[in-house]
Design a protein around this nucleic acid. Structure first.
Lengths: 171, 171
DNA sequence: GGTTGCTTCTTGAAGCTTCAACAAATGCGG
DNA sequence: CCGCATTTGTTGAAGCTTCAAGAAGCAACC
């Protein structure tokens, strides 16, 4: 990540400019700190990592509190394998239950249980407060909007592009 | 994360507004996709996860290619425990070596080896290209600057605040 | 000098993620 | 209806992270 002076003949790759490096470093630091912070917050207050909490939220927002595994994986931006392990754990906690799909015998629904709903209701306020305090309280409305737009662009660019081996929808 | 109507008496917690939710979702999606993308890229091309690559970079930038463990951990925003495991692995790869600190017998330096330098030189161009393509090529200069400022603010807010148990410098 | 408290770094176990491999069901083309 | 590629979801092993605990050196104090 060092910048080896100027590159006269274009044999040198295109490094990040000093400014870009600063941006990138800030991003990496903030992303690391933020994810760690929220992971700890949720591990402490809800007994699960951030990603698992996100899965419960998505199930809670879905029609009959259920989603096909593949759809949940797609929506959460994770592999099916990872989801499979995650749901196994959440099932052991009693927060999610699996149900067969009637129309496709391969299919499985992940269903948010009443206990799962209860955990969400109990822990959501604290989590929202943490997000608020870490992010939204510190940014102006313009910055918030800007952040949304920027991240939307980045996410979009990564969706159809990536060569994910187990993420077919990202191809 | 649902918004249960307005809250007349302030018994309801302060939920995220619809707009804030959109921003937050975009952030989470982009952060997940981006980290996965770079992790895969580096695992494939350099044989190590993104975080480990970052450690090598930091060592490479340091005076005698070395840093005290605690300082490296602080700079990378991770716990010393995590760093300890990471360096163990990097040492096994021959990319980093440990050295005792003469002035403090508890201390250890993590030192980037020549092999470590070689890996960096070989893989940095590809990694920079990936970052460029995923982030900088898609953003206007204004958006880049904005992103930098926003993430700097978020990171700053998380540094001195967090109640990290093993991250004393974050208190 | 000894005590007490702090800092540095490591360790092992438990939990989470990744990867490759797999079984089962689907569905399309002949 | 058969054959074959595709889709769905799971599994186990290996690697990474977290957490709590601990060994060892330092430093300040009396």
């Amino acid at each position: 990540m060092t910048t080896p002076s100027t590159s006269p003949s274009e044999r040198e790759p295109r490094w990040l400019t000093a400014g870009e490096q600063l941006v990138w470093r800030s991003y990496l630091e903030a992303a690391t700190l933020l994810e760690d912070h929220l992971d700890r917050q949720l591990q402490r207050d809800a007994g699960m990592p951030h990603m698992y909490y996100g899965l419960l939220v998505k199930l809670g927002e879905s029609p009959r509190r259920r989603l096909r595994m593949t759809e949940l994986a797609r929506s959460a931006k994770i592999t099916r394998s990872r989801l499979s392990h995650a749901v196994a754990r959440l099932e052991k906690n009693g927060w999610v239950r699996r149900e067969d799909c009637p129309s496709d015998k391969r299919g499985q629904f992940a269903v948010l249980t009443d206990e799962g709903v209860a955990v969400l209701e109990r822990t959501a306020p604290g989590h929202v407060a943490a997000v608020r305090q870490a992010v939204f309280e510190r940014l102006t409305p313009e910055q918030q909007e800007s952040l949304g737009e920027i991240m939307r662009i980045v996410a979009e660019g990564l969706q159809p592009a990536g060569a994910g081996a187990d993420l077919p929808w990202l191809r």
